[in-house]
Design a protein around this nucleic acid. Structure first.
Lengths: 198, 198
DNA sequence: AATACAACCGGACCGTGGTCCGTTTAGTCT
DNA sequence: AGACTAAACGGACCACGGTCCGGTTGTATT
C-alpha cells in the first residue's frame, strides 16, 4: 500500500478511479439528454466505454448508482440539518426545526424527483438505506426535545417520515396538482398536532 | 349479445372465462408451492397451459395479477369497514372506528405479506390503485366526524394512511421484530394525537 | 527488471416482465 | 348450416437488470 494514502480510503486502483469518473460523467450526460428513464445500465456501460460488469462492480445495482448520484446533495442536506444555521440546524426550538426539516425534505424531493424515485427502487427495499435511518433518529431526537412523551418515540418518528415518502409526494404534486406549499402546511399541521398533544 | 347476460359483465367469451379460472388456480398453486417469488409470468402461463400473451391480456401486469388475487379479501375488508359491525363499521364513535381501521389494516398486511408487496410494485405507482383512494376518503370522513378541523383534511388523511404503507410495516416486523401490537399502539398514539388536538 | 498476486475488467449469458401481430375461435346473423 | 367478425389466443421477440468467470492490469515486493 502506498504510504501517503488515507487508511480510510483503503486503496482504490487508479484504473478503477478513472472508470468511476467516466461512469458518473456518462450517467449525468444520459440523464441530461433523456431523463432518468434513459439511463440504462447497458447504455451507461457503452457510453462510458466500459464493460457492464464494471458498472455493477462499482455501484451494485441501478438503485445504488442513483444513490451515488445523489450522494453530494444528500450529504449537503444532512450537513444542513445537523450543523447548519437555524431554523433547520441546531439553535432553533425543536418544533421549528421539525417544520423546517419537512419543508426542506419536500423541496429536496421535488428538486431531484425521478432520481430519488429510482434510488428507492432497491431490491432490498427503500428502508435499508442508511440515510433513512438517520432521518428517523433526527426526527426522534427533535420530538424528544420538543417534550414529546410516548412509549415509542422511534415508531412515531418513523410514522412522521413515512409521510414524506417521495412516491407519495410526487404523486400528489404531479397527479393532483398539489403545491409544495400545501404539502409543507400539511406537514406543519401534522407535526404540531403530534407535538402539542403532549 | 345474449339477452340473458347482465349488462355490467359486458360479454366475456367462454374460453376467456375458462382461461381466467385456470390462471387463477395455477397462480395460487405456484404461490402455495414456492411463495410469491415463485410466481413468474412465464411459469404461470406454462402451468395454466396458456400462452403468455393471454396472461397479460387478462391481468395487464404482474401487479395486476396480484391485485386480482387479493380481490376477494380486499372486497371483504372494504365491506367490513363500510357496512360491518362496530367498532370497524358504522355505529361506533369515529375515533374508535379510526383505531379499528388501522389495527385491521395492519393485520391484513401481515396476513397477505408478500402478495400485498408485489401488488404495490405497479408500473404506474402504488397510489393509483382504487382501493387506496377509497381508504383515504374513508379516513377523511372519519376525521371529519371526529370533529377534525383543518384546511386540508384530505391531505391529512393521506398522511395517516401513508403511515400504514405495507413495505414499512413489513420492514418493521421482519427486520426489527416489531409486533403487530406495537404497530397498532403506535397508530393509536398518532391518530388520537391528531384528532385530540382539534 | 522480474515476479507475484490481488483487484479489476469485459462481455457473454440468464431470467424476468412486457409487447406484438399473425392465427384461431366463439358467438351471431342470415 | 354457412358465413362473418370481433374477441381471444399463443409464443416469438425485446429490453432490461443482474450474474459469472476467464483474461488482464496495476501495484507492491524482491
Amino acid at each position: 500500500m502506498r504510504p501517503d494514502m488515507t487508511p480510510a480510503a483503503a486503496a482504490e486502483r487508479s484504473d478503477a478511479a478513472r472508470n468511476r469518473e467516466r461512469l458518473l460523467l456518462a450517467a449525468r450526460d444520459l440523464i441530461e439528454e433523456g431523463g432518468v428513464a434513459a439511463l440504462t445500465m447497458d447504455r451507461l456501460a457503452e457510453r462510458a466505454g466500459v464493460g457492464k460488469g464494471t458498472v455493477f462492480r462499482r455501484f451494485g445495482s441501478r438503485a445504488g448508482l442513483m444513490l451515488t448520484l445523489l450522494d453530494d446533495s444528500e450529504a449537503a442536506f444532512q450537513a444542513r440539518f445537523l450543523f447548519g444555521p437555524p431554523p433547520l440546524g441546531p439553535g432553533a426550538p425543536p418544533l421549528d426545526r421539525l417544520l423546517a426539516f419537512g419543508a426542506e425534505r419536500i423541496a429536496y424531493v421535488v428538486e431531484y424527483g425521478d432520481l430519488v424515485l429510482a434510488a428507492g427502487h432497491a431490491a432490498r427495499g427503500r428502508f435499508e438505506v442508511p440515510a433513512v435511518a438517520l432521518w428517523n433518529r433526527h426526527v426522534e431526537m427533535l420530538l424528544r426535545e420538543a417534550g414529546f412523551r410516548s412509549p415509542e418515540p422511534w415508531l412515531m418518528a418513523g410514522s412522521l417520515t413515512a409521510t414524506l415518502d417521495p412516491e407519495r409526494l410526487l404523486h400528489l404534486i404531479r397527479q393532483h396538482g398539489v403545491t409544495t406549499e400545501r404539502l409543507a402546511v400539511s406537514w406543519r399541521d401534522l407535526v404540531t398536532r403530534v407535538v402539542m398533544a403532549t
